[in-house]
Simulated assay, not measured.
Amino acid sequence: RRSDAAGLKHLAGHLGLLLAMGAYIGFGGPFWPVLLLPYGIVLMFLFTLSHECTHATPFARPWISDVVGHALSLPLLLPFTWFRYFHLAHHKYTNDPERDPEIAGHPRPTTWRDYLIYLSGWGYWTGN
Rank of each mutant, 00 (worst) to 15 (best):
G105W: 02
W112S: 07
G105I: 02
P107Q: 07
P97W: 01
G123E: 13
P101W: 04
I103P: 01
I103M: 05
W112V: 09
E102Y: 07
Y118L: 00
P109E: 12
Y124V: 05
H106N: 12
L119M: 14
R99K: 15
T126I: 10
A104S: 07
P97C: 01
G105N: 01
P107W: 05
R113G: 14
D114C: 10
T126H: 13
R108Q: 12
G105D: 02
P107G: 07
G105S: 03
Y93N: 14
T126S: 14
Y115N: 14
W112T: 08
W122I: 00
E98F: 02
I117C: 03
A104G: 03
G105K: 02
W112A: 07
P109G: 09
Y124N: 02
E102I: 00
I117M: 10
T110V: 15
R99N: 05
L116R: 13
N95L: 15
D100H: 06
T111E: 12
R108M: 08
R108H: 09
D100Q: 06
P97E: 04
P97N: 02
R99F: 09
L119S: 03
L119V: 07
L116P: 01
W125V: 07
T110C: 12
P107A: 11
E98Q: 06
W122K: 10
G123P: 02
T111Y: 14
Y93D: 02
P101S: 08
G123K: 12
P97I: 04
E98T: 01
T110Y: 11
G123M: 09
D114R: 13
D96P: 04
D100C: 03
A104I: 03
G123I: 06
G105F: 03
R113T: 15
T126L: 10
E102H: 11
P101I: 08
P107V: 05
I117P: 00
A104T: 04
R108T: 07
P97S: 05
E102Q: 10
T111W: 13
G105E: 01
L119Q: 13
Y118I: 00
T126R: 14
I103V: 05
W112C: 00
R113Y: 11
Y115K: 15
Y124P: 00
R99L: 11
Y93S: 03
Y124E: 04
T126Y: 08
D100V: 01
G121V: 08
R99C: 05
E98S: 04
W125M: 06
E98L: 03
P109R: 12
R108D: 04
D114H: 11
G121I: 07
P107T: 01
G105T: 03
G105C: 01
N95H: 15
R113E: 13
R99T: 03
Y115C: 08
L116W: 14
R108N: 11
H106A: 09
H106W: 15
P107L: 04
L116M: 11
I103K: 01
G121H: 04
P101L: 08
W112Q: 09
G121N: 10
A104N: 06
D100L: 02
Y115G: 07
E102S: 10
W122Y: 15
Y124R: 10
D100R: 03
P109A: 11
T111R: 10
G123L: 00
D96C: 02
T111V: 15
I103N: 03
Y115A: 14
R113C: 11
P97F: 04
R113A: 14
R113H: 12
S120M: 09
T126V: 07
L116S: 00
S120N: 06
Y93L: 12
H106T: 07
I117T: 13
G121R: 07
L119R: 06
